[in-house]
């Protein structure tokens, strides 16, 4: 029977949903599901894990995520427990764990996994434009894209928690200093009914006016994909996605957004998604309810006019 490790993830005292997604998936694969939880005074976080067992490692060095300390600890647990499958989130934390494990434990890693079964993993590559199935013999690690599996299936109660001593974590070269909470923005994009969301298709800052006018007409807030924030055309508080906010408005109008997995993660649960994108193959259309491949510079002004 296979032994499946699920590396639990938490941030700022809260278990992240990806943990439950992976636990649920592991359970559906059959076998022994072993959740791995690292922290300090964090044992209770495992109380609703749907697992057969929880391995808990407590150390002050593990209180907050530290790439070096977490990697070392997980490498040692994999070494001593020899799981057949290791599931890690393809998240900011998981990215700092998975590839290192692959080398230090000599196990193949398949990243961006949207589905996992024994011997085969499906990844989403090329910004979600292609799926790739990988065949793997023997034990492996998969890093799982958030939003791939239901959260509820990973919740349960009563897994036995086994406390395991931390490996030697002295002399770490990376020291955690602090968590910095995001500053509050002028607008809370998680609390509005309608979002006009703009992506790189808008081309330049001057064109932002085109979507702003539509948003004003709708009484909607303007949100965006990451490149718009990196270009400093909108503040970070307007970013939707993996490293931004999760939104669930009644209507989400994606304008010139391709629908990379990191963006989809933040908006796929919106009630009604409308996509305006000239590329008929853009992945955003796989998630949208309504779509058009007409040029945004034609559709958006015409739509503003009609409202």
């Amino acid at each position: 029977m296979s032994k499946i490790f699920v590396i639990a993830e938490h941030l700022n005292g809260e278990v992240e949903d990806i943990t439950y997604e992976m636990l649920g998936k592991a359970k559906s694969l059959g076998g022994d599901v072993i959740a791995v939880l690292l922290g300090s005074g964090a044992k209770d976080m495992a109380s609703d894990f749907a697992a057969d067992k929880v391995l808990y490692v407590d150390s002050p060095e593990l209180a907050n995520f530290n790439p070096e300390a977490y990697c070392k600890t997980i490498v040692s647990l994999v070494g001593s427990h020899t799981p057949n499958i290791v599931l890690v989130g393809n998240t900011s934390q998981g990215m700092d764990i998975a590839a290192g494990l692959s080398i230090d434990c000599n196990m193949p890693l398949i990243a961006y996994a949207s589905d996992v079964s024994e011997g085969s993993v499906t990844s989403q590559l090329y910004g979600g434009k292609m799926s790739v199935e990988s065949a793997v013999e023997g034990d492996f690690i998969a890093s799982v894209l958030a939003g791939s599996f239901p959260v509820d299936a990973g919740k349960g109660s009563g897994a036995a928690v086994e406390e395991v001593a931390a490996p030697d974590l002295s002399g770490l070269k990376i020291k955690f200093k602090q968590l910095i909470e995001p500053e509050g923005g002028d607008v809370d994009i998680t609390a509005t009914d309608v979002l006009v969301s703009v992506g790189r298709g808008i081309q330049n800052e001057d064109n932002m006016e085109v979507v702003q006018v539509l948003a004003d007409k709708l009484g909607a807030a303007l949100s965006c994909s990451r490149p718009i924030v990196d270009s400093k055309w909108l503040p970070k508080t307007r970013q939707v996605g993996k490293s931004g906010l999760k939104v669930k408005p009644k209507v989400y109008i994606a304008v010139g957004i391709s629908g990379a997995p990191e963006h989809i993660e933040g908006m796929k649960d919106a009630d009604c998604i409308i996509a305006i994108n000239t590329d008929a193959n853009a992945p955003i259309f796989d998630y949208a309810d309504y779509g058009t491949t007409e040029d945004l510079f034609d559709v958006v002004p015409a739509l503003t006019e009609k409202l």
């Binding site: 692959s102 990988s134 065949a135 492996f140 949208a288 058009t292």
Partner: peptide, 20 residues
């Protein structure tokens, strides 16, 4: 890498949008 690609495919659209 320890694994090999067995198949590449365009993702089947998840229901897909109604194109106007």
């Amino acid at each position: 890498a320890g694994s090999s690609v067995s198949r590449m495919f365009k993702p089947e659209s998840g229901g897909g949008a109604e194109m106007l």
